[in-house]
């Protein structure tokens, strides 16, 4: 909350990027994936994305008004990013109220109630998704294919590449990479996601440590368990959430080693849920769980102060 006199700890060097600037870049980085989603699923997906983004911004403005906080919803962009992210992790054919309720829950309950931007303890978009998954499990797990057929997520066939080939054709690897295998709006095209992620990495908005350790630990564990590497990384929401959600500044550790531990944890939990859990995909709960752990990780991996020596036992 901006005040006239701000008391803060050193260092007092300021970066040139404002919250607004960061959010704008994240928004731009998500656009290729959003476009591919709309290209794959048509107007329905576009409508869902618009609805979720708009209702996140409006709900945040309303909540800030009611809580008598300065209304930053329209210009700081964080609510718009949350809404777009939530829309991207919804199946394309969800009823309209899922997008609205999910976005409102994300920004009001997961964010504003806990103190607004910077004070939320879990990623708002994922909290919204988890809420929707608990409220309307059937609507959240019905996916339409590129051919308009409804069906389960391709993750249901994760254990067997022959089943995958039978369901999505021999070229399913390339199709999954480009965006022709069903999934949520944002996760279809791994290529588009990587484009956005590369932009964020190059402009130093996100750090490579969390996504890399996340994808690596999930990949290694999957290979050990006998799941094909390309299937485990290309299908489902791993790439989307590793780059755009696990890297949320507020809910992930700030120290370098902490980031690696955080990413490893996400990968391990995600793998465990996929392999033995009740849900086909475990991205949401993996990141939410690690969000909750991140203060502990941060405490355990606090960098040494300059000149500090180990206390003698």
């Amino acid at each position: 909350m901006p005040t006239k006199l701000s008391v803060s700890l050193s260092p007092h060097v300021r970066g040139e990027l404002s919250t607004q600037g960061i959010m704008l870049r994240v928004f731009i980085a998500l656009l290729p994936a959003a476009l591919m989603g709309v290209y794959a699923f048509g107007g329905q997906a576009l409508w869902t994305l618009i609805l979720s983004t708009a209702s996140a911004v409006l709900a945040e403005a309303l909540a800030q008004k009611l809580l008598k906080r300065p209304v930053t919803a329209f210009h700081d962009g964080s609510a718009a990013v949350t809404g777009l992210l939530l829309g991207l992790c919804l199946p394309p054919a969800v009823p309209w109220y899922l997008a609205v309720v999910g976005s409102a829950f994300a920004v009001v309950i997961a964010k504003q109630v806990f103190g607004g931007l910077g004070s939320n303890f879990v990623n708002p978009a994922l909290a919204g998704r988890a809420f929707l998954l608990a409220c309307w499990p059937a609507a959240m797990t019905t996916f339409i294919g590129i051919d308009g057929q409804t069906g389960a997520t391709p993750l249901a066939y994760l254990q067997s590449p022959t089943d995958l080939a039978a369901a999505f054709g021999e070229n399913w690897r390339l199709d999954a990479f480009l965006g022709r295998v069903p999934g949520t709006i944002g996760e279809v095209s791994t290529l588009a996601l990587l484009l956005g992620a590369a932009f964020l990495l190059i402009s130093r908005i996100i750090d490579w440590r969390i996504p890399l350790s996340y994808l690596a630990s999930l990949g290694v564990l999957s290979v050990i368990a006998g799941v094909e590497l390309s299937a485990s990384l290309l299908l489902g929401g791993v790439v989307l959430s590793a780059f755009f959600m696990a890297t949320d500044y507020v809910t992930s550790p700030a120290s370098s080693w902490g980031k690696i531990v955080f990413g490893l944890g996400c990968g391990v939990v995600n793998f465990v849920i996929r392999q033995w859990g009740a849900y086909p995909e475990g991205v949401t709960y993996a990141i939410l769980l690690m969000n909750v752990c991140s203060p502990l990780i941060e405490r355990a991996t606090r960098p040494k102060k300059y000149g500090e020596v180990k206390a003698r036992a």
Binding site: P95, Y97, V101, I109, F131, A134, C135, W136, P137, A139
Partner: peptide, 15 residues
């Protein structure tokens, strides 16, 4: 009415 199942489960109770 699309029943929001979470409200008859434990987390809905807390919310």
């Amino acid at each position: 009415y699309p029943k929001a199942l979470i409200f008859v489960m434990a987390p809905g109770g807390f919310f």
